[in-house]
Amino acid sequence: MIVAERKNIDEILRMVEPYSNVAVVACGTCVAVSMAGGEAQALEIASLIRKKARAGGRDVEVTVTSVIRQCDMEFLDALDDRAEIYGAECVLSLGCGAGVQFMAEKYPYKIIVPGLDTTFIGVNRGLGFWTEMCQGCGDCVLEKTGGICPVSRCAKSHFNGPCGGSSGGRCEINADADCAWQLIYDRLKRINQTDRLLEINPARDWRASRDGGPRKLVRADVTVGDNDGE
């Protein structure tokens, strides 16, 4: 899932300060699971905005509403007849980066600001603890690396084994971080595939990743008419 973190509250307050009617819109999918952009967090942020406005002697209307997924037009459409959005001068979106942008596309004349910092595609490993697992590189190599991603989990995105800084299974950048190549090695050993390590993985074609410019995916098998993705 997409993991996100609430922005520093002062930064949020600064962004919404110029407006007298603010709608805080929660998102019910990834960011709700990562406890950053769900309804509970939206209510909390709304009350902080109100408190700050009161302290400054300003009169601000702050409402809270929520959709299941802000990155999905079908769900966003549900906002159309809600008074919260209708009356809002500024929408503070608690979606991930995709959600915020889709919101801005949907309401071209409204001020849309982000309440979260979208961090990574990752997993939850315990209460309040998430780690990055994938960078969406567009050319997955997990079959070669025992199911452990060298692109996102090695600090240097190495494809041919560990750097010289790997020590005691830890990454050179941080004694708390696992060396991805140690994990890959341990796992390949367990599944009897250490011969995979002998292959020289050639330089990558990063066009599949962000480096080829923003990516677009058009699938002919599910496309209707001459949809070019626009």
């Binding site: 600090a155 240097k156 995105s157 190495h158 494809f159 041919n160 084994g161 750097c163 010289g164 800084g165 050179e172 950048i173 941080n174 020289i200 993985n201 050639p202 330089a203 990558r204 990063w206």
Partner: peptide, 28 residues
Amino acid sequence: LSGDHQSFGNHPASKNVYDVDSIQLLDA
């Protein structure tokens, strides 16, 4: 060589390139 990660130096905020790793560069 791979190079020490930039977090060790005086520009920890810089972008980390690693377009190729050291084996791929030797091959180049």
